[in-house]
Design a protein around this nucleic acid. Structure first.
Lengths: 233, 233
DNA sequence: CAAGCCCATTGATACGACGTATTCAAGACC
DNA sequence: GGTCTTGAATACGTCGTATCAATGGGCTTG
């Protein structure tokens, strides 16, 4: 994982979090703090801090006399970036990717429509720059550099929408795009049609064509979902 | 507030959380655990548990030799239900309501489109039931009962979409609808056009007309946004 | 057999001590 | 004079123990 030396409590979280979100503990399973303290060779204080965080993510509840109870998946705070990362690293990664892609398909077109009305000149320039960067890196095994531009492009759209809820999904989109590149089509050059769409989106935003920007991004997300359907049954 | 007797740590959270999200502490402000322990008249252990939760919400970071630093608003986990509740109860409630309504306008139509393809017969029945309930309570100062049906209707749509990310927004929508009723139009009967739209959505889902369901819900959310523009400048 | 009381269990809180990373500044060296 | 090193102060991090409180199950009793 990534977090290791940030304190003992982080280490406990990085073990329990993925385990719970991976479904290793069935809903209703009770964990006792003493037992956890012994298992991780830390004090109960550390365990309690970790449990409090898991509780705030609604992965568990802590009740007196009962113990720390694992909650069913419907209760989880699935928008918590930490939870998203844990689940993407775990077993039901495919379902998670699918859920997030559907979410993208709902959010990003609307965000693009808003961005076309609200983007600053600097943000328009940024969009164009990254769209052109995608074009430049779209051929000949430069997927890593392509990905950087792709992520930056979508991040800019979301930020330019002027809506903080949209803006905060930038990390999620980055995670989805990264995951797609890493797993599914590492050796395939990106779809040229998608690249072209990005360029046209940048242009639509620049000329403040809200409906066209929205429609174009909708095409992009539809393509992304179709791609997912082909690659992951 | 609501949480009081759930432990001392909850009391600390219910004071610090709203204070931070309300902007009472500028980003960069440092709080010391000893100072907080004295202020709340609890032990440092309790403070540390609360701080850990605030840290997982990205409201603060805790660094050695520095203290507990308040993070800028862009870092906050704005999808955390707790954070949403705190902000809705605080000063920038109007902006928060606007952000969430925009979010709804992106999510719900797509969710309705999916629901039309995936809803179970039971869910279809539920939709119809609540739509009719809205009709029955739409006149004559029955806003409280109307609200119950309205919330249940949108919750069902989100759940029937089959997407867990959508389903988890049910609480947010409930909060928005409740807030709107409580603050803005407590004494005005609901817009009859909106009521009719809900009935038609239920029907569209029942006959599996995906595009019509999506379009109708889009009309509903557009109406909600227009209403917000009129009532809260 | 049922209803209510008692107690063991387990988390919740507190407190004091020590560990440790981090920062800031003083001082030495180039 | 400027830069690097080093050390001390500081505030969070961790730990162990003690005590409190709530809860669920078992026991008692009518």
């Amino acid at each position: 994982m990534e977090n290791q030396g940030q304190g003992l409590h982080a280490r406990v979280l990085d073990t329990l979090g993925p385990a719970i979100t991976a479904g290793e503990y069935a809903a209703g399973t009770v964990l006792r703090t003493d037992e956890l303290a012994e298992r991780f060779d830390v004090s109960r204080t550390v365990i309690r801090e970790a449990v409090r965080v898991l509780e705030s993510m609604r992965l568990v509840t802590s009740r007196r006399r009962v113990g720390v109870t694992v909650l069913p998946a419907e209760e989880w705070n699935v928008y918590d970036p930490q939870v998203i990362r844990w689940r993407l690293a775990g077993a039901d990664r495919p379902r998670q990717l699918r859920s997030l892609t559907v979410l993208r398909s709902a959010i990003e077109p609307v965000a693009a429509g808003l961005a076309a009305r609200l983007a600053t000149p600097a943000q328009c320039a940024e969009l164009t720059e990254h769209a052109l960067g995608m074009v430049a890196t779209s051929r000949g095994q430069q997927l890593a550099r392509y990905l950087v531009h792709d992520i930056a492009f979508h991040r800019t759209i979301l930020r330019a929408s002027g809506n903080e809820m949209f803006a905060r999904l930038g990390d999620v989109v980055a995670e989805v795009l990264t995951g797609r590149t890493e797993h599914d089509l590492m050796f395939t050059d990106p779809d040229p049609a998608a690249v072209t769409l990005h360029v046209r989106v940048a242009e639509a935003v620049r000329v403040r064509d809200s409906v066209r920007a929205e429609a174009l991004v909708r095409e992009i997300t539809v393509g992304a979902m179709a791609e997912l359907d082909v690659l992951a049954p």
